[in-house]
């Protein structure tokens, strides 16, 4: 990517963000929010965060070594830590350290 393309990428992210923040104030002031939009508000977050987890793992190929094992194990540790303590930062830090140790020392 050239410098200009990088700035366009960052600019588009900023623009999209501002659209999502400003649009309600421009469109829905004084009106009732359409039912379908309200529905998406409930249903979209779970689906999008699911998609983002898959996005993070897009380069993992289960057919070649290390078969996604370090990723799978580190995710398991993250989930267990989170179910146990329910401390977001602890779960993220624990899972990351676990992954770093696995790929640097084991795999």
């Amino acid at each position: 990517m050239t410098l200009a393309q990088q700035f366009i990428t960052i600019g588009l992210c900023a623009l999209a963000t501002m659209l999502t923040r400003f649009v309600p104030f421009l469109l829905f002031s004084g009106k009732r929010t359409p039912r379908f939009i309200q529905y998406l508000g409930q249903a979209l977050p779970g689906a999008i965060f699911g998609m983002l987890v898959v996005y993070c793992l897009k380069s993992v190929n289960p057919l070649v070594y290390s078969h996604g094992l370090p990723e799978g194990l580190a995710i398991l540790v993250t989930i267990c830590l989170h179910l146990w303590k329910r401390q977001m930062l602890l779960s993220i830090a624990g899972g990351t350290v676990c992954y770093m140790l696995l790929i640097q020392l084991v795999f």
Binding site: G46, F49, G50, L52, V53, C56, L57, P70, E71, A74, I75, T78, I79, H82, L83, M88, S91, I92, G95, T96, Y99, M100, L102, I103, Q104
Partner: peptide, 16 residues
């Protein structure tokens, strides 16, 4: 190496 997993872990936790 592997520090980029912080993003994966973050989204796993939010998803969970």
């Amino acid at each position: 190496m592997g520090l980029d997993f912080v993003m994966t872990a973050m989204f796993v936790v939010i998803f969970l």
